[in-house]
Structure formats: C-alpha cells, structure tokens
C-alpha cells in the first residue's frame, strides 16, 4: 500500500464518520428540542420538561390524523403486497417481451414528482366522479406503496429458485398453495423489508395526499405542516419524536428479524 492509498483510506473514514454524524444530527436535535421547557426553540434547552408532550393532548384533530394515517398505511401496504406478489411472479416468470421496461414502469412512481401525481389523481378522480376523500387517499396511497413492494420482490424473486414451486406441485400442492407455502416463507425477509418501507412511505407522504384530503380527512404529515403554520411551538418536536420512536421500533423489528444488512438491500 502506497502513501496515497493510505491518505485515501483515512479520508474515506473521516468523511464516512462525518456522514454518520450529519445523518443523525436532525434526529438528535429534534429529540433534544422536544424536552425543552421553553416555548421557543433554544438549544441547549434552558431546562428539561415534558410539557410539550402533555400539550399534544390539547391539539385538536391530532388523534384523528394519526388514526387515518395508520389506517391508510396498513390497508394500502396489505393490498400492495398481494398485487405486488402476483405482478412480480408474472414479470419474473412470465414469457413476454419488454419485461425490463414493465419492471421499470412498475417501480417508476418512486421517481415521479409526488405533487404532479397528486394533481393528476385529483383531476382524474374529479372526472370519474369519485368525491370520497378516504377512497381517493387509499387509491393514491397504493400508488405510493406498490412500487416499494415491486422493487424488492422483483429483485428477490429474480434470485429465487422456482423449481422449488414445481417440486411442491409434484408433491400435490396447487399453484396458489405452492406460492403461499414455499415462495412467501422463503422470501420472508423481502416481504418484511418492503412491507415496512412501504408502510413508512405511506405514513410520511405529503405531496400526493395534500391534493386528495378534505377538511375532515387530514393525514398526519398534512396536519403537522398545518400546525407548523398556525402555531410553531416545540409540540411539533414532540410529535416528531413520536414518529422517531416509531421509526426506531420499525428498525428494531427489522434488525431482529431480517438483519440491518438485508434491510438496506430492500
């Protein structure tokens, strides 16, 4: 190893550790700011207190927003896991031309501008006469969650040995049962990872939801931005810390079951 190699190596460690600090900074700051006793954001806080957590109780509509967001995230992820499993098998095992472009299309909503998709859906739903906010939101959130599921399942099914399905069928299982008994358990890590990320993406979505909500149905991110405009006190940091706790739980579940290293491949 030459001198230059050593410099490169040290430099990559310095930048790498700097990157870790940079990534953790907003999280640490938010949690620290949520325990302040002061009504404004000063860091370090003059004194520690739980008052902003207690104040969450008095925020009107917060609980409704949490329930709506959880509902949308759970239902849209469940539907996407079913649609995504079928579609991935079709694309990976099917025999038709342009499969690569079909796969690109299925994953493309991840890279499309959310606001534009939201606007397009708003106009489309209006045209077909769909006025119900919950259904509009649900249909929109499946567009958010499905590509997450497809991306992970397409990759892991590409590496799956489908002769195991044929073996199960030789042993007398029907095709759907063979999928449920052999394929799904074998790809459990992929299902868990893609399901978790799809769930979080739906929970966090702002740009698509903003066009599909009405006065009564507001999701959590929309409600949070509204609070931020109306009354920007540290209770927002307390709400954010709640979401950070949720992310930590998801991370713990993920690392205990599939391992962090497999999660990042999702």
């Amino acid at each position: 190893m030459t001198q230059t190699d050593r410099i490169f190596r040290v430099l990559s460690w310095v930048i790498g550790l700097g990157c870790v600090l940079f990534l953790m900074l907003p999280i640490v700051i938010t949690v620290a700011a949520s325990f302040t006793s002061s009504p404004v954001y000063t860091l370090p806080p003059p004194d520690w207190s739980l008052r902003w957590y207690q104040s969450l109780d008095r925020r009107s509509g917060l609980w409704d927003a949490v329930v709506l967001s959880l509902n949308l995230a759970l239902v849209s992820t469940a539907i996407s896991l079913v649609l995504g499993t079928l579609a991935s098998i079709g694309v990976v095992r099917g025999n038709f031309r342009g499969r690569e472009w079909v796969a690109t299309f299925a994953v493309s909503p991840l890279m499309m501008p959310g606001l534009v998709v939201g606007v397009a859906l708003l106009q489309f739903f209006r045209e077909i006469g769909l006025r119900d906010a919950y259904w509009s939101l649900l249909l929109g959130h499946i567009v958010i969650t499905l590509p997450f599921v497809m991306r992970t399942l397409l990759a892991s099914m590409g590496a799956f040995d489908f002769s195991m399905i044929d073996a199960a069928r030789t042993l007398g299982l029907s095709y759907p049962r063979a999928i449920m008994k052999v394929l799904v358990p074998n790809l459990a890590p992929a299902y868990l990872t893609s399901g978790l990320f799809a769930f979080l993406a739906s929970m966090d979505n702002y740009p698509i939801s903003i066009f599909l909500t009405d006065a009564r149905n507001k999701t959590l991110p929309i409600k949070m931005l509204q609070y931020l405009e109306e009354q920007p006190d540290p209770s927002l940091a307390a709400m954010s810390s709640g979401l950070i706790l949720l992310a930590v739980i998801v991370l713990l579940v993920g690392s205990r079951t599939v391992g962090l290293n497999r999660m990042i491949q999702g």
């Binding site: 790498g16 990157c19 870790v20 990534l23 953790m24 900074l25 907003p26 999280i27 700051i29 938010t30 700011a33 954001y41 000063t42 860091l43 978790l196 990320f197 979080l200 929970m203 966090d204 702002y206 991110p221 949070m224 931005l225 931020l228 927002l236 940091a237 954010s240 979401l243 950070i244 992310a247 930590v248 998801v250 991370l251 993920g254 962090l260 290293n261 999660m263 990042i264």
Partner: peptide
C-alpha cells in the same frame, strides 16, 4: 453504526427532517 445511520433517517418522514433543519438553521439555532 453505519447501517443505523442509513436506515433510521430513511424510515423517517420528510416533514420531520425538514422541520429539524429549519430549527438548525435559525439565527439562534444550533
């Protein structure tokens, strides 16, 4: 440490992170 530093922020909504940066960048901020 590296993996947590990647996955934890990825699991967090953009509203939370953008809000944190708006606190960080304030004139009397961190």
């Amino acid at each position: 440490v590296f993996l947590v530093a990647m996955v934890l922020p990825m699991s967090l909504g953009v509203v939370v992170k953008a809000f944190a940066w708006s606190i960080l960048f304030r004139a009397n901020g961190f």
